[in-house]
Design a protein around this nucleic acid. Structure first.
Lengths: 210, 210
DNA sequence: CCTGCCGCTGACCATTTGGTCAAACAATCA
DNA sequence: TGATTGTTTGACCAAATGGTCAGCGGCAGG
């Protein structure tokens, strides 16, 4: 997802391989549960060679998280005042679900980081993330005041979209086993269900609209 | 949540203290990331003393998970055919949210286990869990066929309830920081929001009902 | 009060783990 | 080609980690 700054071809290739392998391992076991040996083996490199490219285990982890937040918030940033409010939010829902489908490891990495108390990204949560959500919450309140959206708590609306979409990445094992399915089929079904869910709840009631 | 079988008072007290401490640690760091020293310190016992009560780290972890699944599924089991379908599902939603409020550590332990590939509970997921969801999905389909519930995919309805309710336990740090609140206030707000969300989506439309 | 078991501990052990380093090896460029 | 820079590795290290064990103290029942 994020390409590291590199001077030579070999550097670009190997540090990318390291980050990719580290994403596999960290997203599954969390920072503490992952080992450099696991990452090195998955990357096809020796452990000392890993540490030639990154100074420490934590540096790899931080490098992964560094680029993640921006990418992760891009779908919400794209929520704009123009257009129909309900369709705007449904578009956000679709983009977020697509993120879960395309980048499940990143979603799990994020989940693991938060479960462990968000030691690395707490300031980003209180800073960028909170600011962005505050901003979009104000927009949603505006839409509600205009009668173009049913009156709902904008923060919990956003939380519920995060929860439902990331669930398909973070708990995909459970989803697949319960459904008895494999592959991306659940995502298409989820999109249909969630679209109905949010369209019902967000469409303003014409009988009570002013 | 689950009391271990014990013969003496001291056994009961200490193994309970161990399980309580282990729940703290495992739910935050996952199985691999947790250490016996952490658990021993939190339990106020020495590490050899831990291993006097449990034969291994894994045994503690398994003991925690063993009782969890039943408790975790109790709210869904309580979904019955009697009563109004919409209110039944809203009741399930409320019970599940209450579980997140009262037992956030258990929720995180479960989340961590699934993130790591559910090595210990995969068979329970494919067995008990799937069977229960299949059963309740059939009930929901019945309600839909009777026109007493809007037509929705029952599996993804359940998934979305899991996702939205467990989110407030698993991601509570994020929720609290974004809201700038502390304590249980988010749960009350979430209940209001989610009630509206699901009531809107599940109430059958009288215009299209047959 | 003494005997035997339960509870507990310090010392110890093997393995794993994050990390270092000197030296070997490969690529590049003047 | 030779000098320089970039890349890789085997050997090694200290700390952390899961686990063992002999023994000691205390409490309980006879």
């Amino acid at each position: 997802m994020s390409a590291p700054r590199a001077r030579t071809r070999i550097q670009a290739k190997n540090s990318q391989a390291i980050l990719d392998a580290a994403l596999d391992i960290f997203s599954q076991y969390g920072f503490r549960g992952a080992t450099l040996d696991q990452i090195a083996e998955r990357a096809g490199l020796s452990k000392p060679n890993l540490l030639y490219y990154f100074p420490s285990k934590e540096a790899i982890y931080v490098a992964l998280l560094a680029g993640l937040m921006d990418t992760w918030l891009a779908p919400l940033r794209a929520l704009h005042h123009d257009g129909d409010p309900v369709e705007e939010i449904l578009g956000y829902l679709r983009r977020k679900l697509e993120m879960s489908r395309l980048y499940p490891r990143e979603s799990r990495l994020f989940a693991n980081e938060i479960l462990q108390g968000a030691p690395q990204i707490l300031d980003q949560i209180e800073g960028d993330l909170k600011a962005l959500v505050d901003d979009k919450a104000a927009l949603i309140r505006l839409w509600i005041a205009e009668g173009r959206l049913a009156p709902v708590d904008p923060y919990h609306l956003v939380f519920s979209i995060w929860a439902t979409t990331q669930h398909y990445a973070d708990f995909d094992i459970q989803v697949h086993r319960v459904l008895g399915q494999e592959g991306d089929a659940p995502f298409a079904e989820a999109e249909r269900f969630l679209t109905h869910l949010y369209r019902s709840a967000l469409t303003p009631n014409p009988l009570t609209a002013r």
